[in-house]
Design a protein around this nucleic acid. Sequence first.
DNA 1: GTCTATAGCTAGATAGAC
DNA 2: GTCTATCTAGCTATAGAC
Lengths: 186, 186
Amino acid sequence: MPTPPKTSSSKIIAAARDLIGEPGLDELTMQAVAHRVGVRGPSLYKHFADRAALLREVETAVVADLEAVMIQVPPSLDDLSALRAIAAAYRTFAREHPATYSLIFGLHSGDAAAEQARRRALQPALQRLESYLGNREAAFIRARVLTSFLHGFVSMETAGAFRLGGDIEQAFQAGLALLLCDTARK
Amino acid sequence: MPTPPKTSSSKIIAAARDLIGEPGLDELTMQAVAHRVGVRGPSLYKHFADRAALLREVETAVVADLEAVMIQVPPSLDDLSALRAIAAAYRTFAREHPATYSLIFGLHSGDAAAEQARRRALQPALQRLESYLGNREAAFIRARVLTSFLHGFVSMETAGAFRLGGDIEQAFQAGLALLLCDTARK
DNA sequence: GTCTATAGCTAGATAGAC
DNA sequence: GTCTATCTAGCTATAGAC
């Protein structure tokens, strides 16, 4: 006679869902990196203690790159135009390097250098917001809201999550318009 | 004499960044799932063809769960209150099941069932938005904007990306207030 | 700093008995 | 439908020669 069932598809699915942990970066293997730079895997360990150490440095470098594109905004622009330009630069960066971008908020390694890079990258936008809103605290809150929108939008966009048609560019501009409306000014 | 250098730390970092592909779900191994349901690994293959097939079903189930919590909003609520409640339910779901939540926009498997589940989950919020804004097209755009904000906010929140202090709840409410202001009504 | 060789591990998936 | 046994494959990391 056949062995009695111990489980079921739905039980397996439920267990799988309980099990999901942090997503990794499977493709980034030491050997693949080594091949890219023309050496063998073990040679990398003369440069970095282990894979985690390499990842920490990558994280910091990526954030610095994002800062570099956001900082390109001409100082001559008015605040609102500058904020729009920063947002556009952010989105462009994410679209051009989607997997790389995902490290910025995806690794959360707690690395001090990466954390400092993140803080530094935020600074220009924060200053513009403060000038625009005329209120330091409001600018800080708005920065969080704007960053959330930008991160969510580009994450969905690069993941191909906008699948219902329509003008995606229009949605981006509409979101910016709502979040950059100057309602906090007294 | 020592072997001449073929590479450098910065080259390695650059190569690593070029290499980053899609993040995986390392912890979700077939053996771990099997152990959870009290069987051995190979038994799972009688239920699902392979790991990818299991993941597709998990994805659909997760979206259905998110829909279930968003649908709990009482019909008696006015549109604005209902939209706030839906947003709160979304955020609560992500906070309670962060890793599970990350599958919703993270897997993009192109699975038809998952796609249909996503569409279905969006429907109630979309209807409320249409009633609130009095414009079908504006509601569709606003839904994209709101979803982007929600997804970005909860992704950052669960990743621990809000590291600069301050009231995170206040930022969430501020974002909702800006995105739910009724500026599109004629 | 590079290499070869290898240890040690873990994963996905299959074969065949029951 | 479950099991044991096994295959294949890939990864991190180390040892030691050059």
